[in-house]
């Protein structure tokens, strides 16, 4: 079975690079977007199994990318995790109605992310 594809979209290089590393090490095929617009394009081009979206990014927010994914019938199987640095209840209230499958407030640990990804992808996990 080919490795599941994961798109990490975060404008903070440390978060994008470290998440990319731990996910690759866990056997996933990882793509990185540095802003919301690039995430938008890679969602179409790569068709990842799961997308990890930061909320505040240049050009488009993570919520906008999530809403785009959920508005499209052909992308609906895509799992979405929203990351937020705010860690506020308002983020959770906005993130889940946007159609996210899970919401992870920063700070998080690498192990938490891997466990959540594996849980969401189930049998499709790498």
């Amino acid at each position: 079975m080919p490795a599941a594809k994961i798109l990490v979209a975060d404008d903070e290089p440390f978060i994008a690079r470290s998440l990319s590393y731990v996910l690759q090490r866990s056997g996933f095929d990882v793509y990185v977007a540095k802003d919301g617009e690039e995430a938008y394009q890679l969602v179409e081009k790569v068709r990842p199994n799961l997308v990890i979206l930061d909320v505040m990014m240049p050009h488009r927010t993570g919520y906008e990318v999530c809403q785009h994914i959920r508005s499209r019938e052909d992308l609906r199987a895509m799992k979405v995790i929203i990351l937020s640095a705010k860690g506020q209840a308002s983020d959770l209230e906005e993130g889940l109605p946007a159609g996210a499958d899970a919401y992870v407030p920063k700070p998080f640990s690498p192990a938490e992310i891997i466990a959540m990804v594996q849980d969401l992808l189930g049998e499709a996990a790498a």
Binding site: D10, D11, E12, F14, I15, D54, M56, P58, A85, K106, P107, F108
Partner: peptide, 15 residues
């Protein structure tokens, strides 16, 4: 604001 926000999240994450 956006850069400050990103650095805050990274700093919070690593402790």
């Amino acid at each position: 604001h956006l850069r400050c926000h990103g650095l805050k999240g990274a700093s919070e994450t690593v402790g």
